[in-house]
């Protein structure tokens, strides 16, 4: 009974004392520790340069952490090497501020790239995707409401549409965790909400844990189930998005800063 209880409460991701120092001496993360429970929509806030992007990129090892532990489903990602890193990336989806699609490829082809991690190199180079993978890619395009654009080149879509394609690509990986680095920072306010709504849908309906970096507090309050604030590579706030009052806001963003609302 006790054991079962522990399995349920064990966090899906547990960051322990994570430090990242860049070769040029910049200390982006100075010992960050936090847990993420399964099913959470965790939002990380903070100024540009506070270490948010570095933190996300350390989790899926696009950057190599200097020290510390990243326990994901019980495995320490910080220690992974070579093929181990690729396996981890396969289980963690990621979307980016600038979408990072392949502009010249079609939407469907872009989404299929989510299967690269589990497709043999030679098959993928010749574009020999399994029918299964294609069906799955189309399913996820349908989920983000963009299946009718499957045959169109990715660079012909609007920003919001491209980000939805990026979400579909990440979902095609069948991930347990979705990282979102400033997913709406280069979108207009109206599109912002559409994309955020799809992220929430992914989180609630597919049960995928989301860890996102966001700039706008109004979005944070609307979508986050929990918030972590970074400042200078350290956590300065952890808790409910609704408890961030003006005093906290000033601490996170510096004295004299004003909250901007986005509707």
């Amino acid at each position: 009974m006790n054991g079962e209880h522990e399995v349920v409460t064990q966090p899906i991701l547990s960051i322990r004392n994570l430090v990242k120092t860049y070769p040029n001496g910049v200390r982006a993360l100075k010992g960050v520790t936090f847990d993420v429970q399964k099913g959470e929509f965790l939002v990380i806030i903070g100024l540009s340069g506070s270490g948010k992007s570095t933190l996300l990129r350390c989790i899926n090892r696009l950057h190599d952490p200097t020290s510390g532990e990243i326990l994901f489903q019980g495995e320490d990602l910080a220690k992974a090497q070579g093929d181990g890193i690729r396996r981890i990336r396969g289980r963690i989806g990621m979307i980016f501020q600038h979408f990072n699609l392949i502009p010249r490829h079609t939407v469907l082809s872009n989404v299929l790239m989510g299967r690269l991690g589990i497709t043999s190199t030679w098959k993928s180079l010749f574009g020999l995707w399994k029918d299964d993978d294609k069906a799955r890619a189309l399913d996820y395009l349908r989920l983000v409401g963009i299946a009718d654009k499957a045959k169109i080149r990715a660079d012909q879509l609007s920003g919001g549409q491209q980000q939805r394609v990026a979400i579909a690509r990440a979902l095609t990986q069948n991930p347990d965790l979705l990282l979102a680095d400033e997913p709406v920072a280069s979108l207009d306010p109206a599109t912002c909400h559409t994309v955020m709504d799809y992220l929430r849908k992914v989180n609630r309906e597919l049960g995928i844990t989301v860890v996102a970096n966001l700039h706008f507090l109004s979005l944070v309050r609307e979508y986050a189930t929990r918030v972590i604030a970074l400042k200078g590579g350290e956590i300065v706030y952890e808790g409910s998005p609704h408890n961030i009052d003006e005093a906290w806001f000033a601490r996170i963003y510096g004295e004299g800063s004003k909250e901007v609302h986005i509707n």
């Binding site: 990336r89 396969g90 392949i102 790239m113 690269l116 991690g117």
Partner: peptide
């Protein structure tokens, strides 16, 4: 950007070159 995008899916080095750089 595209390189990070492809790498994040767990692609191999060769796949990253082929899908993110060659296009």
């Amino acid at each position: 950007g595209p390189i990070e995008g492809i790498q994040s899916t767990g692609a191999t080095k060769l796949q990253t070159i082929w899908f993110a750089i060659v296009p």
